[in-house]
């Protein structure tokens, strides 16, 4: 057991934690926007898949990472538009439409991948790790924090931007009001629908980016169902984080940590636990955490409720 808790092990685990948390950060902060405005989107798994595929296909054909990320965001936004059309304009139940999003995302990406990609060989160029002079070469700390690529550091940007937008701009204030007292917003002469569209588009764009992280920021291939349930985990993250972007960032990291730990611990021959027990760890810990923190009533009060005028 001695070699488990070494500095090297910790550094590796922390580095892996952030990398594995990154897609969750994007998707869950996106979902925070959406849910704060009262729109519950359980279809982020499908949106992530669309982002992952759109990004991958674009970079595969054009070679441009920037364009790939743009297309991933656009693909996510397109899914968001569809989701908004049905949940906000048609006012259909959000869970129903979210379920349809998951099916569409999985089916469409797999179908298109199958039709247009026979073998992708070497895959695409992923975002390169940044070399920060001085910092990247630091022992331990360098590996843990300063050898990541721009998409990993982007998670910091997203969380800061999200906090700023939600709490320091009138757009954010109104957006949150839409999730709590839509009628008041309506009476004040602002369009509830428009704000909800805005929130859903931001949410799905970020989910698309989270998906693209998988194909453009971490591994360089697309595989059917590559999101591997991360969209559902992101939903859990949002509740766990009580609809706060900063919370979502840290809870994502916690999930990343569990995930990294289980992969690292499996390789420790001294541990005689079935590896499935380690695999179940993140999920068991989520439940344990929910019991420990006892969910206060922070839920946006109009979450999941379509708004009807009058």
């Amino acid at each position: 057991m001695d070699d488990i808790v070494t500095l090297g092990f910790i550094a590796t685990t922390l580095g892996a934690t952030w990398r594995l948390a990154a897609p969750l950060v994007y998707a869950s902060i996106g979902e925070v926007f959406s849910e704060r405005a009262g729109v519950l989107n359980i279809g982020i798994e499908g949106v992530m898949l669309v982002g992952a595929f759109a990004g991958f296909a674009t970079v595969f054909w054009t070679g441009s990472l920037a364009l790939g990320l743009l297309m991933a965001v656009a693909g996510g936004a397109l899914m968001g538009l569809l989701f908004g059309l049905f949940t906000i304009t048609i006012k259909a139940d959000q869970i129903v439409v979210g379920a349809a999003m998951n099916l569409l995302g999985l089916g469409l990406t797999a179908f298109l991948y199958r039709t247009y990609f026979v073998s992708t060989g070497r895959g695409v160029e992923i975002a390169p790790s940044l070399n920060l002079p001085g910092l990247s070469d630091l022992p331990f700390v360098g590996e843990a924090f300063f050898r990541h690529n721009i998409l990993v550091y982007g998670t910091l940007l997203v969380v800061i931007a999200a906090v700023f937008i939600l709490h320091r701009t009138s757009f954010g204030l109104t957006l949150r009001a839409v999730g709590e007292h839509p009628k008041a917003v309506d009476i004040a002469g602002r369009s509830v629908a428009l704000y909800r569209y805005g929130a859903v588009l931001i949410g799905c764009s970020l989910a698309g980016l989270g998906g693209a992280y998988l194909t453009l920021g971490h591994s360089n291939q697309f595989v059917e169902g590559i999101a591997s349930g991360r969209g559902f985990i992101a939903l859990a993250v949002v509740v766990f984080a009580r609809w706060s972007p900063i919370g979502a960032f840290f809870v994502s990291l916690l999930f990343g940590l569990f995930y990294a730990l289980q992969l690292q611990l499996q390789a420790q021959p001294a541990l005689h636990i079935p590896y499935q027990a380690l695999q179940a760890l993140p999920y068991v810990m989520t439940i344990a955490a929910l019991i420990l923190v006892r969910n206060r009533v922070d839920t946006p009060s109009m979450l999941g409720v379509p708004y009807r005028k009058g």
């Binding site: 590796t12 990398r19 897609p23 059917e224 590559i226 995930y259 390789a267 499935q276």
Partner: peptide, 20 residues
């Protein structure tokens, strides 16, 4: 040493397992 990632789709997990 051996690590099982528990599925056949999660490229990221395979990558992190190897890095670890």
């Amino acid at each position: 040493n051996q690590v099982y990632i528990g599925n056949f789709t999660d490229i990221s997990a395979a990558k992190e397992a190897a890095l670890g």
